[in-house]
């Protein structure tokens, strides 16, 4: 039993980083543009399809396919931001409507091009690590390390670079930030593109672990938003912790409780935390 619990703790942490990368995109977009971009799940799905197509269709090596797919998604995110989301800044409802419409367009595009047939990328790194009876697939370990590095690098960039501090300043007081010389439009567009790039990265890594279908974005954006709320929207490291809490709750919960309802276990955590800390684990009450 101990092996089972430890195995699922590890697995929950790894799966949780996938939720965390989406949560990070959600929290950054919300902090800077004032909208919750539900289309990040669709961008994640698109990142997975691009990566699969580059590796299995065009035979691009996976380590090269990932940055190519992420760059393509970032560019797409920038275009979409300038064409659509630019007009919804700080308007939650309009942003929500545009993002929902965008999900339909992206999903329809994928259905049209690649159909509903599940796609499966050739294994990038088969095999498992066995640590004292606990089994961890090698690729999952790699995905965890890559996502952890990206999340930590994002945190470092936000706290230790001028652009990062400008973003924080803008999130706290847009007018003051503009008066201090922050190019707000460039900052907003940059953060929107970076958030979609994070979602694209999540998708690119996801494709190496699981089969892909046009619907995968739906459940991941929900988990991402769930993790962001659990942490308290606006907290970068909180998003990371939120993703991991949900991943671990699902994994360990499935051992002791019926696995048929494992999506609910993360939600139970969310409700419990919001009951006692309405601003989320790392959020500050206004």
């Amino acid at each position: 039993m101990l092996q089972l619990v430890v195995g699922q703790l590890l697995n929950g942490v790894i799966v949780g980083t996938l939720y965390a990368i989406i949560a990070l995109g959600v929290t950054l977009t919300f902090g800077i543009t004032g909208i919750v971009n539900f289309a990040l799940g669709a961008f994640m799905m698109l990142g997975a399809y691009f990566t699969w197509y580059l590796t299995d269709g065009l035979h691009v090596p996976y380590p090269l396919a990932v940055p190519l797919a992420v760059a393509a998604i970032a560019l797409l995110g920038l275009v979409v931001d300038q064409v659509l989301f630019r007009f919804t800044r700080n308007n939650l409802i309009n942003g929500l409507i545009v993002s929902i419409g965008l999900i339909s367009v992206i999903v329809a595009f994928v259905l049209m091009v690649w159909s509903t047939t599940p796609q499966n990328m050739e294994y990038v790194l088969p095999g498992v690590f066995r640590i004292g009876g606990v089994i961890v697939p090698k690729m999952k370990a790699v995905v965890f390390v890559v996502l952890l590095v990206v999340i930590l690098a994002t945190y470092a960039a936000l706290t230790r670079t001028w652009a990062g501090r400008a973003a924080y300043a803008f999130a706290q007081n847009p007018e003051a930030a503009a008066l201090m010389g922050v190019r707000t439009k460039v900052l907003q567009a940059g953060v929107a593109a970076y958030s979609t790039a994070l979602a694209g990265l999540g998708g690119a890594l996801y494709a190496s672990l699981y089969s892909i279908t046009p619907e995968i974005g739906g459940s991941y954006i929900l988990k991402g938003v769930e993790a962001a709320i659990l942490a308290g929207i606006g907290s970068v490291m909180g998003s990371f912790a939120g993703g991991i809490i949900i991943g671990v709750a699902e994994g360990v919960g499935s051992i002791f409780l019926p696995s048929a309802y494992n999506d609910a276990y993360g939600l139970v955590f969310l409700v419990l935390i919001l009951l006692f800390k309405p601003a989320g684990l790392f959020g500050r009450s206004s």
Binding site: L4, Q8, N11, L209, S219, S254, I255, A260, N262
Partner: peptide, 20 residues
């Protein structure tokens, strides 16, 4: 009998239980 949510992608937990 073991069950999972239709949208599940990671079956590690329930599969580990079954494997045991």
């Amino acid at each position: 009998e073991n069950w999972f949510e239709p949208a599940t992608k990671d079956y590690s937990a329930v599969l580990a239980k079954i494997s045991a």
